[in-house]
Amino acid sequence: MMEQHALCVKSNLVNLALISEFVGEQAKQLGLNEHQVFDIQMAVDEACTNSMEHAYDGQDTGEVTVCCYSENGDLVIKVTDFGKPFDPSQVPEPDVSLPLEQRSIGGLGLYLMRRLMDSVEFSKQASCGNEVTMRKHLNLAEQH
């Protein structure tokens, strides 16, 4: 049977540290290496920041849930919120080859999520505002 672990916090940025600790613990238990654990913590932090800052407009009265489980050789992490719908296609991808002076300020969080995880999917659910599903392969412990 698939074992799930979930953490639900208020949409306050101070809870990012708590989320990071929770996700790190789950990833370590599944045998991911230090670099992979850090990559996952980074990606989840960015997803939760998006929920708190954009879906909830910075209001700390909403809830963000982070759910972890392993499935088909992947660590799966779902971040859900009940905030306003978020459309990732509206966020331009940053051109990281440009000189820093010419970089636009936005889009870095989503870009990092996609680069640090093996897959990232966004969906809008009727029962909850937004759901981000991220996967990291468990059989690549030797890789970053």
């Binding site: 970089r103 990092l112 680069r115």
Partner: peptide, 17 residues
């Protein structure tokens, strides 16, 4: 630290800084 070096590299911040 190495793990932060990696993230800054992915973000295209290094080697500019």
């Amino acid at each position: 630290p190495e793990h932060i070096h990696n993230v800054l590299q992915i973000a295209g911040i290094l080697p500019l800084i």
